[in-house]
Structures are given as structure tokens and as C-alpha cells.
Design a binder for these strands. Structure first.
Lengths: 250, 250
DNA sequence: GCACTAACCATACGACCTAAACTATATGGC
DNA sequence: GCCATATAGTTTAGGTCGTATGGTTAGTGC
């Protein structure tokens, strides 16, 4: 009967340590993590340094190790902190499809607020309280379907991975166009033209056709990133619909 | 009429520099990148160091800067190198579905050979010759469909992102169980039980139900990771099928 | 006031990436 | 054959960062 919880999990869930002995702590895990998140929001992931965090808090970097096992662990804590709790359960009508769509939109919005978040190294399955909160909301949206637990978890994994990947790509493209005052369509043009010169139409006929198709030349929608995101999301949701129908038949 | 190509792209595509002047080079980009890949295969991404690469090649770390602009750029080159060219075009029957499935399987196999590959930071849209090769194969599988280019690119992005995310998760789970001689089902048990103790059934009823469902207790398939992968893949392919039908109707 | 415990700090070390200046080795024109 | 030139590679050094170690400070409870 192991009642114990790994120390990393304990800090993620902020389990109180219980001890009135010794010198009282001037900080707590929360303040450390919040300072780190604020720093990442300002300077990016690469700008997060134990020294700078400590400076911000008026302590030395070594004292942070009283609250965090290592920088790697700190990154995990930052991830859960920045993700925050999932929005309230919709419970409204619209069924699973609207529920999943809202969920994905909300998660995307979180990534937009913290551009570094999708770039955090994955450290395993969702384990923090906020990650669990999002998990709960997603599963809730699927509650009235005939899917078994394995399928629900698969959908959750797929969907969160998709949002993460899409956000990551958006951020990277945005980073690529920093300095040169180009917006998204211009970057796509640049990309398409540079590669059109490199791609041999004989070796890669499909790609060559793509780059001469004019897809990267037209300035179509007013928010192309949103449109791209919606395309993939709808495609996934169509797949979910198929799975739900199949489960209902069984 | 800019005939020029950014220097990063030039190195990715190994554009020859043309110059018989000066001291002849003892190395070339290829050898540097291959040594780096071999090192990553052995020691992981964190074990890749300019010093170690140089050592392996019998030079000093600074000389590597003759071939690579920075370590960041080296990572990009490593990514394309390790990905390698896509497998030969199937051209067989089975249509787009078999084509995409084979493609995804092959990409997954590449990630299995280079566990660090899915962990590389994304640096933009596919740009290297090998990435383009995989792009070409994927587009080829969709050739006989009525999808427009935008949809095809969306599917490519979605699919490659999915494979990447799934591989990343597999690697991280495998890493989590290093040291303690546990296999996948045991790790899932450990995960399920640890979280079952932390998750409040009132706040997170769905998750609580999941963790008491026994999903993480049973040792079901003989290759659970493969089964999970297939579930997501089939779901995506079902979504693609829907999109193809819709495009054909239009 | 004394043992004990926990929080915090000063110091130091070892990686690592890379800028700058210098040396080595080839080519091509005279 | 020699020199200007251009490219390759080395030396040296600086700066940043994570963190191991050991000492110091500030509280609690007997």
C-alpha cells in the first residue's frame, strides 16, 4: 500500500510540507513558478535563468533549489502554471463537437498568451492539476458518446497534440519573420519562392507542382493561421464523428 | 529577380561553394552533420556538443564554424540528415489511404531509429531536401483525390505533426521508466495509481472515473504503443476520407 | 538557553557556445 | 620561384549557466 507520491508530483500538486520547525520560508513554490512564467512571457524560454528568477525575487539562485529540484523540474511546473485551469464546463447544447471545438480554441488561446508554452519539452503524460483539469473538460465533452475509455484518451492525446503542434508552428513562423517587417502572406511568398528555386521538378514533381500552384502567392483569408487551424481541427472532429458512430453501432 | 538563397538553406541543400582558392578543406558539411547525428544516436540530444563532435572528427570545436553557422543551425541540419529520404513511392494499389498509412509508419520508424529526432525544436516549415522528399511522397499519395493544394498541405501538416507527437510521447515514457526495470504496462499502472490518489473525484469526476476504470491496470495488447498509434492514425484517416468525399462533391 | 531543523547564501567548479586574432596551406598571376 | 590572396584551422579568452558543497542565519520546542 504505497501511500507515497513522487516528489515531483508533490510539488506539482502543491502538497503542503507540514513543518513549523526551522527558519520560516520567505518564498513558496508558487511565487517561484509565477516569477519564472512572467520571465518567460517577457524574454522567452531561453531568457529563463535561475539567476534572473532569483534576482526578481530578491534571493540568490541557490535558494531556489529549496523549492525546485532542478531547472528541468521548474520547466514542468511552469508548464502547468501557465496552462492554468480549463474554462468552465460548457454543459450547453451542441454536443461533443461543440465541446471539443471550444476546448481546442481555448487551449490555442492559452498558447497564444504564452508563446513559449508549446515549446516546452514533453515530460510525460498529463500530470499537473491544471493539465488534469483540461483533461477532465475534454473527457466531459465526450461523456454522452459510446466511446470506451481507451478511445477517449486517444482522442484527448490527438487533439492536444494537434493544438500544441499548430501553435508551435505559428510561433516559429512568427519568429522567422521578426526583424524583417513581413507579415504572414509575405513570409509564405518568401518561403515558396526560395524553395521553388531549389526543388527539382523531376525528383519532386508533387512539391514542384505545389510551389508553382500559386498557393503561396495569393493573399486569401484575413486570418490564414486561423483558417489552417480550423481545417485540421475539423478534419480531426470528422474522424471523431466516425469513431463515435462506429462505437454506437457495436 | 533575387536569385539568392539564404545561407541556411544553401547548407541544407549542400549547394557547392565553388572555389579552388585557399587552403583545401579537410571536412565538409556532410561529415560534420553525420558525426553529430551519430553522437545524438549514442548520447541523446543533450550529449551533442560542439566539442565532442570536433573531437570525433579530429579538429577543434572552433573549426566547425567553418561549416555551420551556429549550433542551432547544426540542429536543423541534423534533423534533415537523420530523417533521410522518404521510401520509394509505392505506386501500388490501395489508394490514398494505404499510401498515407505507409507514409506514417515509415516516418514513425525513422523516429524509432533516432529517438532524439522528434524532440528537435521546430524551426519552420519543411525546407531540407529530405523533408521535401517526405512531403513529395505524402502529396503523391493524395494525387488522385479532388483535394485542393491547401487541403493537401493541411493534411500533410496534421499527419506529420501527429507522428511526431506520438513518437515524442513514446520516447518520454520510455525515458521515464529507465532505471526502474518496468515495462509499459507497469508504468501505466504506476501513473494511474499515483494520480488516482491525487485526483479529487468531485473536482474532476471524468478523470477520476477514468483512473478507476481499470484502463491502466489491464495488460491488453502485446504492443500497446502500436495500438495507440493506430487508433489516432485511423481517426485522422477517417477525417481525410470525409474531406475527400466533400471535395469530390463540390 | 540549548539542541535541532530548515532556509538561505558565498564560493567554486565545470560545461558549453562563440568572438577575435592569429597561423597554416593551398591557388594563380607575375 | 615568389608574392598576393583567399580559405581552413587553432589559440585564447570571455561570458553565461546549472548546480555541488559547506557554512550561516533564523526560527521551534524542550
Amino acid at each position: 500500500m504505497g501511500d507515497e507520491v513522487p516528489v515531483g508530483l508533490a510539488r506539482l500538486w502543491r502538497l503542503p510540507a507540514e513543518s513549523r520547525l526551522g527558519r520560516p520560508a520567505a518564498l513558496d513554490v508558487d511565487r517561484v513558478v509565477r516569477a519564472a512564467v512572467a520571465l518567460a512571457d517577457r524574454d522567452g524560454l531561453g531568457g529563463v535563468t535561475l539567476g534572473k528568477i532569483a534576482n526578481e525575487l530578491g534571493v540568490t539562485s541557490m535558494s531556489l533549489y529549496r523549492y525546485v529540484g532542478s531547472k528541468e523540474e521548474l520547466l514542468v511546473l511552469m508548464g502547468d502554471e501557465a496552462t492554468g485551469p480549463a474554462p468552465e464546463l460548457p454543459a450547453g447544447p451542441g454536443g461533443w463537437r461543440a465541446g471539443l471545438r471550444d476546448w481546442a480554441y481555448a487551449l490555442r488561446a492559452v498558447h497564444a498568451r504564452h508563446a513559449w508554452l508549446p515549446h516546452l519539452p514533453i515530460s510525460g503524460p498529463p500530470s499537473g492539476p491544471n493539465a488534469i483539469s483540461w483533461m477532465n473538460t475534454c473527457l466531459h465533452a465526450l461523456r454522452d458518446t459510446a466511446l470506451d475509455w481507451g478511445a477517449k484518451v486517444g482522442i484527448l492525446t490527438l487533439l492536444s497534440g494537434y493544438v500544441r503542434g499548430a501553435s508551435q508552428l505559428n510561433v516559429d513562423m512568427a519568429e522567422g519573420r521578426r526583424g524583417s517587417g513581413l507579415d504572414q502572406p509575405q513570409v509564405e511568398q518568401e518561403y515558396g519562392r526560395a524553395l521553388a528555386r531549389l526543388v527539382d521538378a523531376e525528383r519532386f514533381p508533387e512539391v514542384a507542382a505545389l510551389f508553382t500552384s500559386g498557393l503561396f502567392e495569393q493573399p486569401p483569408a484575413d486570418d490564414p493561421e486561423q483558417a489552417d487551424f480550423d481545417f485540421g481541427l475539423d478534419l480531426i472532429l470528422d474522424g471523431v464523428a466516425t469513431a463515435i458512430r462506429a462505437a454506437a453501432r457495436a
